[in-house]
Structure formats: structure tokens, C-alpha cells
Simulated scan of single mutants.
Amino acid sequence: MFLDDVRLHDWAPGLPANATYFKGEVPRDRQHLPRFIDEFVMGQIDNDMSLARLPDHTSRTAIVILIETGLRSVDALRLPFDPVTVDEAGAPYLMYTNHKLSREAIIPISQRLLHQIRVQQADLDERFGTPRPPFLLPGIRANVDGSRPLSWSTLQARLERWLLDCDVRDATGQPVRVTAHQFRHTLGTRMINNDVSLPAIQRMLDHDSPQMTLRYARIKDQTLRREWERYQDRITIRGEVIRLDPAGR
């Protein structure tokens, strides 16, 4: 892009008209795999006992939103006071602004998340009264009128303290560090491992292109292992399972 702008704006008057660059000279676009949270760790995080140890309703609501919806932190922290709508059948949906793409989006939510949002709203009514704060997740300190949203740094600091308080560890017994954005990767990974279609995942995560969602198709680790383990078995005509010899004998 810089080299294109150089020619467009004539920033290098002496540059020959036939000067060009070749594909091999351009750095490759590195495609990183999603940094999902292992299910062993998620089992320690996403349960009522652990969530109850978060210090307040605002922190608890923020974490449940991130786990269930996969929203980017900036989008979750800027949710309006009442972001919920329902369809003709009464099923709840979350409306939010995708700030990265500057557009509105809507996704389905669970009854658990709906309940948590209603509890948060009741808590805000008690804390701030009328007028209500503009944000569902207002800053907790030095925010008398609730006009400032909870900051990313505060959310991440509370998340880190919460993980330490709950003594969350990985399968090897080591303490884990989780970032708020990893919940987004985890939701995508869970959906692909449960055979949700890529277009549905793209809609849920509000990706701008299928290429972003296709990253999740490369990491069906759990699905791949199930199929690999099934491949290791051989069935005789009598229905007996014979394990495949790893040595190939």
C-alpha cells in the first residue's frame, strides 16, 4: 500500500514509470490459528460457582457476554443499557454495533444471558436511578453518572484476578492466563467442533468475509481426534473391535 501511494501521490518524482514489484517481494500475509481456550480450562471458568466469585454484577455480566456471544471486548463494553430485542416467538437477541466494521449486528442469546442482563439492569437502576446510564457495563469507580463505559484494562485486570482467585489451571497443573478476546476464539472453535456451518459462524461472529471464518475450519481438533480414534478401530465380521497396530503390523 505504501509503494502504491508513493506512485499515486508522486512522492518519488525520479521513480521510473516501469518500476514495479513482484509478488515474491511482498511479505506473506501470516494466517494465525485462533487462540481458543482449552475445554479443560473452560470447565473451570464457565460454571455458576466460579462466576459467582466475580466481584460485582458488571464484571459477571461482561464475562458471560464474552463467553456466550464471542463479542469483541470493545463491542461488549459499549453495549447500550438495553441491547435486547425479541422475535415474534419471544426468543431473545442481542443488538450491538460492530465497531470494527462500523455496522449494526444482531445475534441470538440464551435465557441465561438474558437473565444476567436483566439482573445487571436492575443493579444499575439501584445504583444510578434516573436517568439511566447510557451503557450496560459502565465504569465502576469515579463514574457517578455512569457516562463512561467499563474500560478494557479494568476488565482484563478483573479477569486475571478472578482466574487467580479461582485457581484455574490447565491440564498439566499450570496456572493459566486468559485474555478477554480468547472467548471469541473459543466460541468459534466450539461451534466448528459441533458441526455448525461456516456461514452460521460467520453470522454469529459478524466476520466481514468467509476467509476469516475459514480459520476455524482448520482447527477441528476434537472432531479430528474422534475421527482418528475411530480410524484406529477395525471391526471383524463377528462385530469384534480390533485395534490397529501403530507399527502397521
Rank of each mutant, 00 (worst) to 15 (best):
R184H: 02
R184D: 01
R184P: 05
R184K: 00
H185P: 02
T186A: 05
L187Y: 03
L187F: 05
G188P: 01
G188Y: 05
T189S: 08
T189A: 04
T189V: 06
T189L: 03
T189P: 01
R190G: 10
M191W: 03
M191R: 06
M191F: 01
I192T: 08
N193M: 07
N194S: 07
N194R: 13
N194E: 08
N194Y: 06
N194A: 09
D195V: 02
D195G: 04
V196R: 06
V196A: 14
V196Y: 08
S197I: 08
L198R: 07
P199S: 00
P199R: 04
A200D: 15
A200S: 14
I201Y: 03
I201T: 04
I201W: 02
I201A: 05
I201L: 10
Q202V: 02
Q202S: 04
Q202E: 08
Q202C: 00
R203P: 01
M204D: 00
M204C: 05
M204V: 09
M204T: 13
L205Y: 02
D206E: 01
H207V: 03
H207G: 00
H207K: 00
D208W: 11
D208I: 11
S209W: 02
P210K: 09
P210T: 09
P210G: 09
P210Q: 08
Q211D: 13
Q211M: 14
Q211K: 13
Q211T: 14
Q211H: 13
M212S: 09
M212F: 07
M212H: 06
M212G: 03
T213L: 05
T213H: 00
T213Y: 04
L214Y: 14
L214D: 13
L214Q: 15
L214A: 15
R215E: 12
R215S: 12
R215A: 12
R215C: 11
Y216Q: 04
A217F: 06
A217L: 05
I219S: 07
I219C: 08
I219E: 07
K220L: 11
K220T: 13
K220G: 15
D221H: 10
Q222S: 14
T223M: 10
T223I: 11
L224Q: 08
L224N: 07
R225V: 10
R225F: 09
R225S: 12
E227G: 12
E227A: 15
W228G: 12
W228Q: 10
E229I: 10
R230I: 11
R230G: 15
R230A: 15
R230D: 15
Y231E: 13
Y231V: 12
Q232H: 10
Q232L: 13
Q232I: 05
Q232A: 12
D233M: 12
R234P: 02
